[in-house]
């Protein structure tokens, strides 16, 4: 263990911390458009075994676009567009991971198209489960009618994770599904939704 002079270090730390918040915005790097263009171009041929450093322009663009709605929207649009192309599974996997952070309602239709795809359903849910707003929830609810088996169980799990109260009736009906995996997932999802404090209070009253 090392031991430092408290006065000098703590003062320095305090000074640094006071300026830290302000420094964040100032330190936010600008979007390197050339690097971003290059990375998006690389996505077209990206596959397992490709050099992931070629995508670094996208990695850097995410924090760089924080706080800039216009730049973030542009990034999101360009990423989501990849999902509708013949890009590889690896490329779409990468895109969905990034849409987990930058995705909005605008990306939902592109993601929705993947939910019934056995290979890409979970990939799409990586983003859909975490994108705020009613559109993602509605898309997942709609997918209850278009998916079956394990994919449907996955969709149910995402609705639970989102604590999507609008899906309660649909999930309740699935509790008794003939597929035990679906029924179990629905019961679990209802439990996830039910762990909200307000819901807990309601259930307590009911059983009083």
């Amino acid at each position: 263990m090392q031991y430092q002079d408290m006065t000098r270090t703590t003062l320095a730390t305090a000074t640094t911390l006071m300026g830290a918040a302000a420094a964040v915005a100032a330190d936010a790097p600008a979007v390197d458009k050339a690097a971003l263009d290059s990375a998006l171009e690389a996505l077209k041929t990206f596959d397992w075994g490709s050099d992931k450093d070629a995508l670094r322009g996208i990695e850097k663009a995410i924090p760089a676009t924080h706080g800039s709605a216009e730049a973030r929207k542009d990034l999101e649009t360009r990423l989501a567009a990849v999902l509708g192309t013949g890009a590889s599974r690896a490329a779409k996997d990468y895109v969905c991971r990034k849409l987990t952070i930058v995705g909005t309602a605008a990306s939902v239709p592109a993601l929705a198209a993947l939910l019934a795809d056995k290979e890409l359903s979970h990939t799409a849910r990586l983003a859909l489960e975490r994108i705020p707003g009613p559109e993602a929830g509605k898309t997942l609810r709609d997918a209850l009618g278009t998916t079956t088996g394990a994919l449907k169980a996955g969709v149910i799990g995402s609705l639970g994770a989102r604590q999507d109260t609008e899906s309660i009736a649909a999930l309740a009906a699935l509790v008794a599904d003939s597929d035990p995996a679906i029924g179990s997932a629905a019961a679990t999802a209802l439990g996830d939704i039910g762990t909200r404090p307000s819901s807990t209070r309601r259930s307590t009253r009911f059983f009083r």
Partner: peptide, 17 residues
Amino acid sequence: MRTKRILFLGCVMAFLG
């Protein structure tokens, strides 16, 4: 946890039913 779920299912039923 499971009990919360069951309680909540009951809650759902109470509201809807």
